[in-house]
Design a protein around this nucleic acid. Structure first.
Lengths: 138, 138
DNA sequence: ATAATTCCTATCAACTTTATAGGAATTAAA
DNA sequence: TTTAATTCCTATAAAGTTGATAGGAATTAT
């Protein structure tokens, strides 16, 4: 399961992709209201996404957020990793957040292989799905 | 991520598949020791698996556990569901543990589709991998 | 009787998740 | 220069989940 936080992040980016323009940043309060996301929680999420250089923010009365990266180039795999961390179902098969299994003999592990397959299948989808491609529900 | 509990369950079933026989049940303490699983924790896991009719148990001095189901017929998908619950990355795309998203308009949801794809790819692996097939690491 | 097992309930510490509170800093505009 | 609206930041916290452990009861072969 992805966290609610991650789902909120996806929704926020989708909303931004639709509603921003060169002239217009978008208030977090607007996103929160339209997407039914708790206001203060969304603020912290947007700040994180800004720290990851996905967003640009502007303070003050005419402030708000806008995308820095082209939504064509924001892939779900990287977004999930930023917000939730590992995608794999086992720490020892994670590509970006590898952690060894203390109780295992990893050389002779019988359960790694299947979760490597799951990881690869999952990534086939997530690394080819961008924020903009999610708009075309096929 | 699957839980440690789930990983322990997989290991326990793999161990049973290898070490049981018609004459021999296996003690939980033996599995715990050989697989480095906390003893008391494993007891509760094995009891759950028994309740799910995967295992049979016998009390007393010559007691222990053995598989009821053929390990050819125990698929990872069902095991994970028994121990951890849903496999899908979103409640609203879960086949066995569906839950609606309160804050979403599910008809027009832009994020469901991709997670349905992930679910299907994941299940392609997990529904075709049995305890016995995990022995042949290919 | 004894010893070894499974069975059962309750408990619990640590961690994670999902937020909220309370304000500070910034900015445009009245 | 004041006001109002925003982002930014830190701290806190309630609720839920995870990963166990405690303490014994019931069962069974010897």
């Amino acid at each position: 399961m992805i966290s609610k936080k991650c789902k909120y992040a996806i929704k926020a980016l989708l909303y931004l992709a639709d509603h921003q323009s060169d002239e217009r940043s978008v208030f977090s309060s607007e996103i929160a209201e339209k997407e039914n996301i708790p206001k203060k929680f969304l603020e912290t999420i947007l700040r994180e996404l800004r720290n990851f250089k996905l967003l640009q923010s502007q303070r003050g009365k005419t402030g708000g957020y806008r995308l820095i990266k082209n939504p064509d180039d924001i892939y779900l795999s990287e977004l999930i990793r930023m917000v939730d961390g590992p995608i794999a179902m086992l720490p020892c098969v994670s590509l970006n957040y590898y952690a060894s299994c203390e109780e295992c003999d990893e050389e002779n592990c019988e359960i790694k292989t299947v979760f490597e397959k799951v990881r690869d299948r999952t990534l086939e989808v997530l690394t080819t799905t961008s924020i903009s491609s999610m708009k075309n529900k096929v």
